[in-house]
Simulated scan of single mutants.
Amino acid sequence: MSRHLSIDVAIIGGGLVGSSAALALRGMGFSVALLDKGYCGAQASGVNYGGVRRQGRPIEQLPLSQRAHAVWPKLQALIGIDGEFLRSGHLKLARNEADMATLEAYAGETAEQGLDLELIGHNGLRERFGWIGDGVVGGSFCAGDGHANPRLVSTGFAAAARRAGVHVLENTPVRGVARRGEGFALEAGEGLSLASRFVLNCAGAWAGPFAESFGEPVPLTRIYPSMVVTEPTEKVMSVNIGMEGGGIYARQVERGNLVVGGERALPLANADFSRPRGEGALAIMNNAAALFPGLRHVQAIRFWSGTEGAMPDRNPVIGPSLTTPGLIHAFGFTGAGFQIAPGVGEVLAELVRDGQTQTPIAAFSIGRFAATSARTDAGSGAGQNQEPNQAGEIRS
């Protein structure tokens, strides 16, 4: 049986970016449909590490990150749950003097951004964070950062959007979208057609074909985060931990479980899905035990992975289409979308309502890939995406 739905805004992708945009748009009075090919928050938004950090982001992301930073303490009022958000602070460690110099340079470059970074030497680390083992020379501490439970937060925004009156359509893949008159026509699921004034492309790792269908190809690739969670244990760490240059990252929740990451999983035959590598999970735990002696006898109880869209320059695509009025993109967060997603949702809503936003997003324009796409199409490597480098860490 076919059915038709007319709304102001159709959002492709029910992850945290799409669902937060849906909630913000509904608060502005727009009618909204949120469509996901599976379940809202089941991919990158729900399976990431759960870091709520500003520290370490490219400088051009910091205004957007600061905007999102103001949202996280308000989750209870906004979506009805706190998402286990804890402002624990984020400590980024340096293994050697070169890494420490990088942290020092970053602190200087971001001094006017409001992160209030505190550089800590080796002796200071030993005094304040005695549970950290040898092998580090210092660190950078951002007291206002923290962590949260991605499974609760990602589904929490979608549930709040549904309560606000958004048409949340799960297991409803978008099979086609085209410009029609002053708006768009979409075909989705089994026999569902939609008419909308605006379309938001928030499809994550699946966003590339939608952008390309409107003449805006991008070098979007897929990466697969791999995480480990341990049994509950006594308090080992008090802050969210990262490493300069990549590698291990870890946090401990109030129940005592530790969430640890630092490796990538392998895609299955169907590249929409992946599974953790046994040797990767073992490497995560061995690296964590070496850095945090208190974890040496803690048992790992669960492993997981997911699918994340990645861009070669580590920055997402956020902003209006340059070919199609009414189409707005937001994808390619390269493992770092969890913290900024609520801010992105607000920005997308403003772009729909006002056609602009006060938050700087020019660096994220899809137009930055136009020259690259033209060169690629002219050469023999057309259609071949560049693999993101190791700087595109799988964290959030």
Rank of each mutant, 00 (worst) to 15 (best):
V174R: 02
F273L: 15
A203Y: 03
A271R: 11
F198S: 00
C202G: 00
E182D: 14
R222V: 09
R175I: 10
L268E: 12
A178L: 02
M237Q: 06
A211Y: 00
T233C: 15
R179I: 02
G176T: 05
A195I: 01
V177A: 12
V174H: 00
A164S: 14
M237K: 01
G256R: 08
L192D: 01
A281E: 08
N201I: 01
I248V: 15
N171W: 09
R255L: 11
V260N: 04
P232S: 09
G215A: 10
R197N: 12
S274L: 09
L194E: 02
E279D: 15
V218R: 10
F273P: 01
G246T: 03
R277F: 01
F214G: 03
E279I: 13
P173S: 03
E182H: 13
Y224D: 03
P173Y: 04
D272G: 11
L192Y: 01
T233Y: 04
P173I: 01
L266K: 09
N171L: 12
R197W: 07
P219S: 08
R255E: 15
N270P: 04
A271Y: 10
G165E: 10
D272V: 02
L258Y: 00
R163T: 05
E187S: 15
A281L: 15
A269Y: 10
N171D: 13
H167C: 03
F198R: 00
F210S: 05
V260A: 09
P232G: 05
F214V: 06
V229G: 01
E187Y: 00
A283D: 12
G242Y: 05
R197D: 14
E216G: 05
G278Y: 10
R180N: 13
A195Q: 14
Y224F: 13
A205D: 03
R180P: 00
G181D: 11
L220W: 06
F214M: 10
C202R: 02
H167E: 13
G278S: 13
A205H: 11
E263K: 13
N171M: 11
L268G: 15
R179Q: 15
A195R: 13
Y224A: 04
